[in-house]
Structure formats: C-alpha cells, structure tokens
Amino acid sequence: MQLKINGQNRTFSVALTVAELLSRLQLAPERVVVELNRKILTADHHTATRLQDGDSLELIQFVGGG
C-alpha cells in the first residue's frame, strides 16, 4: 500500500493499521499526534483504524521538556 507520511510517499508490502504503522516506524504511540487525511486520530483509535491505499498522514512526535 502507498501512504503519504509527512509529505513523503512511502510504500508498504502489507495493509497496516495506524498502530502497526507507528510500530514499523519505531514511534512511541503515546508520544505521537496522528493526523489522518486532515483529521486528528486520538491514541484510543490507533489499533482499530485500518489505513487505506493513498491515505495521507501527518505524524508529529513530541519530545519531553518544558
């Protein structure tokens, strides 16, 4: 499947959920804000949300400090 992640086209050999994608990208889900097709997706929906070919995602990872 083809996804656009933070403006870059990426190809994956299998269909993924949002949780699986974050795991593949080695992103800690509890520190990431996910915007899927311009809609915010809270962490409780990561596992149940299946990505579709052509989906566009913004993944914004926070680091600690403030």
């Binding site: 520190r31 804000v33 996910v34 997706l41 809270t42 914004i60 926070f62 680091v63 600690g64 403030g66």
Partner: peptide
C-alpha cells in the same frame, strides 16, 4: 505547556 511528551501528545490530540 506540559513537560512530559506523553502529556503533550494526549492533550494535543484530544
């Protein structure tokens, strides 16, 4: 304006 990354992401998403 939180300190912990998890708190930042939780607040922002929600």
């Amino acid at each position: 304006a939180f300190d912990a990354a998890e708190q930042k992401a939780l607040l922002t998403s929600n």
